[in-house]
Amino acid sequence: GLPPGWRKIHDAAGTYYWHVPSGSTQWQRPTW
């Protein structure tokens, strides 16, 4: 699974990851 606080988001551009507490997003899968 993903580290705490991360969500996987799907949209028209593809899949990305959202860090809910900080509001940051990234294309790379977050690592622990």
Rank of each mutant, 00 (worst) to 15 (best):
G1M: 13
G1N: 13
G1F: 11
G1V: 12
G1L: 14
G1K: 13
G1H: 12
L2H: 01
L2E: 15
L2P: 06
L2M: 06
P3Y: 01
P3S: 02
P3Q: 01
P3D: 01
P3W: 03
P3E: 02
P4R: 06
P4V: 06
P4L: 07
P4G: 06
P4W: 06
P4A: 06
G5Y: 04
G5W: 07
G5P: 05
G5H: 03
G5M: 03
W6M: 01
W6A: 01
W6H: 00
W6L: 00
R7H: 10
R7M: 14
R7G: 01
R7T: 12
R7A: 08
R7Y: 12
K8P: 06
K8R: 13
K8Q: 14
K8T: 12
I9L: 07
I9M: 13
I9D: 02
I9V: 14
I9Q: 05
I9W: 06
I9F: 05
H10E: 15
H10T: 15
H10N: 12
H10M: 14
H10W: 10
H10D: 13
D11K: 07
D11R: 10
D11N: 13
D11P: 00
D11G: 15
D11T: 15
D11E: 07
D11A: 13
A12L: 10
A12K: 12
A12T: 10
A12S: 12
A12G: 12
A12R: 10
A12P: 11
A12E: 14
A12M: 09
A12W: 09
A12Q: 10
A13K: 14
A13P: 03
A13Q: 13
A13S: 14
A13F: 15
A13Y: 14
G14H: 06
G14S: 05
G14Q: 07
G14P: 02
T15I: 13
T15L: 08
T15Q: 07
T15E: 09
T15A: 10
Y16W: 12
Y16D: 00
Y16H: 04
Y16N: 02
Y16G: 05
Y16I: 08
Y17D: 00
Y17G: 00
Y17Q: 01
Y17V: 01
Y17P: 01
Y17A: 00
Y17F: 07
Y17T: 00
W18F: 14
W18Q: 12
W18A: 07
W18E: 12
W18K: 12
W18T: 09
H19Q: 00
H19R: 01
H19D: 02
H19A: 02
H19F: 04
V20H: 07
V20R: 06
V20T: 08
V20A: 11
P21M: 07
P21Y: 08
P21W: 07
P21I: 09
P21D: 09
P21A: 10
P21F: 08
P21K: 09
P21S: 07
P21V: 10
S22W: 04
S22P: 03
S22Q: 02
S22G: 03
G23K: 05
G23D: 07
G23V: 00
S24K: 15
S24L: 15
S24Q: 15
S24Y: 14
S24T: 15
S24W: 15
S24A: 15
S24R: 15
T25G: 09
T25N: 06
T25L: 14
Q26P: 01
Q26R: 06
Q26H: 05
Q26G: 02
Q26F: 05
Q26W: 06
Q26V: 05
Q26T: 10
Q26A: 06
W27D: 08
W27Y: 13
W27E: 09
W27G: 06
W27S: 12
Q28P: 05
Q28M: 10
Q28W: 13
Q28G: 08
Q28A: 11
Q28K: 08
Q28Y: 09
Q28I: 09
Q28L: 10
Q28R: 09
R29Q: 10
R29W: 08
R29M: 12
R29T: 11
P30L: 03
P30A: 01
P30R: 00
P30H: 04
P30N: 02
T31A: 11
T31F: 08
T31P: 07
T31M: 12
T31K: 10
T31Q: 12
T31I: 12
T31G: 11
W32E: 09
W32F: 13
W32P: 08
W32I: 10
